[in-house]
């Protein structure tokens, strides 16, 4: 029972990180129908940006409050990663509108290889550990066998930040003109353009928002694991994509739901079955979901247009 509750907490934490990344996949897929394969690497890049700024803020500028430092790091990482997201869209995806169907995916794979190796060349191939940031835990209750169910502060921070940012994001998509434009483009890009919506700008903004949320996920990932390397984009990226597909690609609540489910499955699988095969589990879910229920839990079934 104690293990179950503990794993539930861990799974929800991991799931919020996946959910944040999954939104980037699902929004881009919804609006231009492409799998942004490079999104996982944008996430990894943002973790590096967060790491470097955390070091700058704490060691050079001498900010001693970790929470304050994290807050600044989060803002800076979001801004700079957005710039990356925007540039990638501008260079690698925008010229491909109207090209053949697989062109954007191949281009995205190219971007993914480029980004991970760019980070490798710029920062070196080793794992980069951070000094532990937040270490305190709250003991929720003590089990009979002496097994404590603990909720660490960093898990609280991760869940709270995720919840707050998702609320802001939800508000933007549902209530602002930007969100309306975005949803319009998602439904019918040509019609939206006729009605005076700047489609290119809306698509760019989609990438910017996706990258910013990936930056939040990257910062939280760094906070949670305390280590990042240039290869860290691939597997979390695939898992987040799995989450997006599981939740129903194109559906924003679906992405968050899928993220939480994938996070829970991963932690429970590691706890109860085998930790070696946890990635096999994730990849199998991806294959099974894509083959048997490609429209996911909350997605609309896709109609094939001739």
């Amino acid at each position: 029972m104690e293990i179950f509750v503990q794993q539930l907490i861990n799974g929800l934490t991991l799931g919020s990180i996946y959910g944040l990344i999954a939104i980037g996949y699902t929004m881009v897929f919804g609006i231009i129908g492409m799998v942004n394969f490079a999104h996982g690497d944008v996430f990894m890049l943002s973790a590096f940006i967060a790491l470097i700024f955390f070091l700058i803020l704490t060691t050079w500028l001498g900010i001693s409050s970790v929470v304050l430092a994290l807050f600044f790091v989060l803002i800076i990482a979001m801004v700079l990663t957005s710039l990356w997201g925007w540039t990638v869209e501008r260079i690698a995806y925008r010229p491909l509108r109207g090209s053949f169907r697989l062109a954007p995916l191949i281009s995205a794979i190219g971007v993914s290889i480029f980004l991970s190796n760019f980070v490798q060349v710029a920062q070196g191939a080793r794992n980069k550990p951070t000094p532990p940031m937040v270490q305190d835990v709250i003991v929720l209750f003590q089990g009979e066998s002496g097994y404590n169910v603990a909720l660490s502060y960093k898990q609280v921070i991760i869940m709270v930040v995720t919840a707050v940012l998702l609320t802001i994001f939800w508000y933007v998509v549902q209530k602002t003109s930007l969100g309306r434009a975005q949803r319009a483009c998602e439904q019918d890009r040509k019609m939206a353009a006729l009605l005076g919506i700047n489609v290119d700008r809306t698509i760019s903004l989609t990438f910017v928002i996706g990258a910013a949320l990936a930056a939040v996920a990257g910062t939280m990932y760094l906070l949670y694991y305390g280590v990042v390397s240039f290869t860290d984009g691939f597997v979390p990226g695939v898992k987040a994509f799995t989450a997006a597909v599981l939740g129903g690609i194109g559906s924003l609540p679906g992405a968050v739901l899928g993220g939480l489910i994938i996070g829970l499955i991963e932690t429970f699988w590691s706890a109860y079955f085998s930790i070696e095969y946890k990635d096999v589990a994730a990849f199998s879910i991806l294959a099974i979901v894509l083959i048997f229920m490609p429209s996911g839990i909350l997605g609309r079934p896709e109609v094939e247009k001739v």
């Binding site: 799998v35 994509f241 070696e276 096999v280 894509l290």
Partner: peptide, 28 residues
């Protein structure tokens, strides 16, 4: 066989997943 029904990019991702599964099985 299982991936035949899928469209281009989904097919690509599923083959990616299969490739990784085979590698992970070889490791484990």
């Amino acid at each position: 066989f299982p991936v035949l029904r899928l469209r281009g990019d989904y097919l690509a991702i599923v083959t990616l997943a299969f490739g990784e599964i085979i590698r992970l099985v070889l490791i484990n």
